[in-house]
Nucleic acid binder design. Sequence first.
DNA 1: TCACAGTCGCGCAAAGTCGCTCACTCGCGC
DNA 2: GCGCGAGTGAGCGACTTTGCGCGACTGTGA
Lengths: 254, 254
Amino acid sequence: MLRENRHRQLLRLLREEGVLPVGQIAERLGVSEATARRDLDDLGKAGRLTRVYGGAVAREPVERPFAEEAVDDLADKEALARRAAAEVEDGDVVLLDIGTTTLQLARQLHGRKITVATSNLAVYEELKDDAEVTLVLLGGQVRPNYRSLVGHLTESSLGQLYADRLFLGTSGVLPDGRVLDTTDVEVPVKQAMLNSARQVVLLATARKFPGTGTARICGPQDIDVLITNQASDPDTLAVFREAGVEVAVEVVQA
Amino acid sequence: MLRENRHRQLLRLLREEGVLPVGQIAERLGVSEATARRDLDDLGKAGRLTRVYGGAVAREPVERPFAEEAVDDLADKEALARRAAAEVEDGDVVLLDIGTTTLQLARQLHGRKITVATSNLAVYEELKDDAEVTLVLLGGQVRPNYRSLVGHLTESSLGQLYADRLFLGTSGVLPDGRVLDTTDVEVPVKQAMLNSARQVVLLATARKFPGTGTARICGPQDIDVLITNQASDPDTLAVFREAGVEVAVEVVQA
DNA sequence: TCACAGTCGCGCAAAGTCGCTCACTCGCGC
DNA sequence: GCGCGAGTGAGCGACTTTGCGCGACTGTGA
């Protein structure tokens, strides 16, 4: 990536987060810590940020992204998102489901040379100013409360797409491996997504076992990879493994 | 390709992307990196762009056609938008083109019991939290600088819609009534819009006569209503009237 | 005060980019 | 046809940037 681009992105990151350690800056910019340090020095000398021992602080006012506090198991979701981001390869076309877990994933995808297609309006907000990411919005009716697009337009858009990877969220996973959702209107969209991707990755934190939900999205046989965390019900995970699903269990440190 | 042409295209690319590495510039211009570098040097010396190691940055704040043009002839645009809003009836399905004029119209449509379909991301921002307006986004690739959606997804979404009214913006109207636009990728979208609406309303402030633009969107016969203001070229307006267009001329007080 | 873990700064090798030169093509006038 | 000049693409040495290792430094807790 161009240094100029990196600098911009660094400042944007800092505006969002307020404070960041060098290690995370390096990781999220996809460069070594040495380079991250050099960038920090440059921008520090230019007065665009304040350098502190071990990282940097935003000089410009921090703009808090909307309802971040509304997310309950944020740490878990972040961990899953980091793991999911590692699955993504440069050049991929990635399809992101609605929900907050996939939003966390989007935040990990900044600066990647990929195409992101989504009906998740929070993901749009997150990635719209990223110069590297090509962003595609599916059509559909806006549902402000769920920050999503739904309807036959969404489904027909999906019919025109084929993604390398789909990252699917869920409201609950039953012991027999059924993947659920709470809102009926989202179901056909999710099912259309399943048909528009080569690989399907399900993101589900421990609290999604069994979680809630009334409508069945799919079964374990439709999933290729399940990313979850330690505390998840082992019996359910076994069901997924039996169905040939690659199960990745993340350890989340408190 | 002629060098002059290439330079123009390079600047346009840069305006859209903000930052670009030499490799991508060369590729998208269809020349070798050596030539791309020479072009960058020329334009850098002429002060048209800022050269950075490995690429180039658009001169000064990335030209946001929006932010700037939005304040240009704002009073005119507001007047046209008010008039246009009066055309809209409750229950209508309204299709809004990209651009700043239609954004002004969106501002006038708050609280109306209507459905708004658009590829204009500024309109989405404006109306997303409005409880009365049902908002439908067309799909497509996000172009952050123009705050629009483009591509075959946008066109195919339009194929699934039929609106009561289309409100069309333009970059210029020729004396013979041809309606123009500057950016090629938007043209098929606008044309698809023309085919998806019962009534077509063109919004064009005085400065759009003749304005700018290289690509033809449509002719006067495709327009049902033209909303413009006093200062517009009367000969051009006559052409529209002859073609059976209802021409509404707004008086704007300074 | 001291130990220790984490962070920083510097030198070095590798990779990428730049600027220069040179050969080639094309259009133009003689 | 032939030379001329402008523009382009390729090769090559010089330079810049990057990532890594190592020793010096800073902050924290005993």
